Simulated scan of single mutants.
Amino acid sequence: MNKIIVILILSAAVGYSQGKNVTVAYGLIIEKETGLFDNNAMLKSMLEKSILESKKLTFQLIITENGSKFFNEEMLDSDIASHSQRFTLAMANYMGIVINLKEKLLFQKEMLGENIYAEEDLKNNWILTNETKLIDKYLCYKATNVYTVLNGSKIFSHPVIAWYCPKLPFPYGPVGYGNLPGLILELRVRNTVYGAKNIKLNSDSNFDIKALEKIKILDKKQLEEAYYKLNDFID
């Protein structure tokens, strides 16, 4: 993603070591993928719309001493997203707010309720490489992983590529990806690319960690049961 990153530094100190937080704005690009939805004209048309609509979306990552919060600005500003917006977000692997509490991930499950979250382990199994590239003069290193999708009895694996910057020592990134020795400035998952557009060090933005006391966290079994009941109700 060839975006210019604007770094706003209010002091020489980096990040929350001085009691301030860090915010990162990410843009999104959904690319065409050969063969995707070729057998479904409706989904293919929706994908083409998503490719255009994705460029209008902005996501925020707030980093504090407690962890991080990743969210889509438009979804927070609107109670009801259009069908095409939800399709675009689904294509971007974004299903709601993601809270990273350093030792675990909490994913919002908006279909089940605003305050329903599922707990997952931090992203691991990264393969670190010596390959580098500059992203707006920041030296970034390449790390790879695999995104696995279960569809019935079939398992699909898609490549994940993260470019992280050790000079920005925050182990976070878009849509729950992180646990690397630096901030992820660019993330590619299949045909979706998140790219940092703006990084603000010593930001006043924050998220209320106490609000997590009011949410309900489901384990894997509870989540499966909740979706089963939801599907049974819809049917």
Rank of each mutant, 00 (worst) to 15 (best):
A90G: 07
A90I: 00
A90T: 10
M91T: 01
A92N: 03
N93F: 14
Y94E: 02
G96Q: 00
G96R: 01
I97A: 07
V98R: 04
L101I: 00
K104D: 00
Q108Y: 04
K109L: 09
N115G: 00
N115W: 05
A118N: 12
D121L: 13
L122M: 15
K123A: 10
N124I: 00
N125E: 14
W126T: 07
L128A: 12
T129A: 09
N130V: 07
E131P: 04
T132R: 14
K133V: 09
I135K: 03
Y138A: 12
Y141M: 10
K142W: 11
K142P: 10
K142G: 12
A143C: 09
A143D: 03
T144G: 13
N145F: 12
N145M: 13
Y147F: 14
T148W: 10
V149H: 11
V149C: 11
L150V: 13
N151I: 09
G152F: 01
S153V: 03
S153A: 10
F156T: 11
F156W: 10
S157W: 00
I161P: 00
I161Y: 06
A162Q: 03
C165N: 11
K167L: 10
L168M: 13
L168I: 10
F170Y: 15
F170I: 01
P171R: 02
Y172E: 09
Y172G: 04
P174K: 03
P174Y: 07
V175S: 08
P181S: 06
L183P: 05
L183T: 04
I184V: 14
L187P: 01
L187K: 02
V189D: 05
V189C: 07
R190G: 00
V193P: 02
V193R: 09
Y194Q: 09
A196Q: 06
K197G: 05
I199S: 11
L201V: 07
L201P: 01
D204C: 02
D204I: 07
S205A: 15
S205F: 13
N206D: 15
N206V: 11
I209F: 13
I209N: 06
